[in-house]
Nucleic acid binder design. Structure first.
Lengths: 153, 153
DNA sequence: TATTGTTATACTCTATAACTATA
DNA sequence: TATAGTTATAGAGTATAACAATA
């Protein structure tokens, strides 16, 4: 895939007002799309549960680590994890090096659940992108690379 | 503002796999930015309250209308609205044509609150866009128009 | 003594069911 | 009888404080 900065016609520098406008318009567009995806697609687990599944998709983590990254209290995470374990989506294991800790990881069913939720969300969004031309899609593909860079900072 | 489709170099049609990839990558990028904006910027009102303020910014509405658009029950909206009225952000008025209805609208303080929240969110996002070149910003400005079109459908 | 995780308790947002007032 | 809104009550997620087990 082409990861270089896309070629666009030369333009004069943006004014401060134009930059502010871009910031606000782009942010609101992203948040509106996010909201609509959440509203229009149903999910088998609640948003805060899905968020934990995605964290565990990257690698196994402790409840404390999850509480910190998800910005919730330890007792809240205890509760959330308990629900995911009860649903068979997350597995608990003792930490062999520290008797106080537990190590949480995704079960195969947990991975399937993530895939299913992404599939539903993409399905809704894909229908909205149907009406675009190839050029418009190419432009959005280039923009996606920039957005990913911005979000990763 | 230029609302026409931006000029980009001619490219061959995307394959189905490329379209699927764009759908998923762009959706996830938007959702990740949305999440980070929500996490990184504090707000004087809760998310569900802010959402109601934005609906009322467009025009006055009844509680029933708000419950429907926000996808919550009528009693939930009663509670949310009560909080906003108590905070001085929303005003209640009797409907002169229907004694059962109440008409909700933003107070000046409610409008100030919306502006303040947007300012904080933009502030965070603007810092992330600082590192981009003018060409990259121009590309994102074009993409924003497409995203707005997509989200509006 | 500090740290990990849980339990106890309370507050908020959510829902459904029942109630009041008006059409 | 139907509709707009509220009140009653309960379930789920969140928090802080207190506790248990381990380092």
């Amino acid at each position: 895939m082409d990861t270089s900065t896309p070629t666009v016609p030369a333009r004069p520098s943006m004014t401060r007002a134009e930059r502010d406008r871009l910031t606000s318009d782009l942010r609101m567009a992203c948040m509106r799309i996010s909201r609509r995806v959440r509203f229009e697609s149903t999910a088998p687990v609640a948003p805060h549960q899905f968020s934990v599944l995605v964290r565990l998709e990257e690698r196994p983590r402790t409840p404390k680590e999850l509480a910190r990254t998800e910005k919730v209290s330890a007792p809240s995470m205890t509760r959330t994890v308990a629900g995911l374990v009860a649903a068979g989506l997350v597995a608990r294991a003792d930490d062999p090096t520290d008797g106080r800790s537990v190590i949480l990881s995704l079960t195969p069913e947990g991975r399937r659940t993530i895939r299913e939720i992404r599939r539903r969300r993409d399905q809704w969004f894909a229908a909205r992108l149907e009406g675009l031309t190839d050029d418009e899609r190419a432009l959005l593909a280039s923009a996606t690379l920039l957005l990913e860079r911005v979000a990763a900072e």
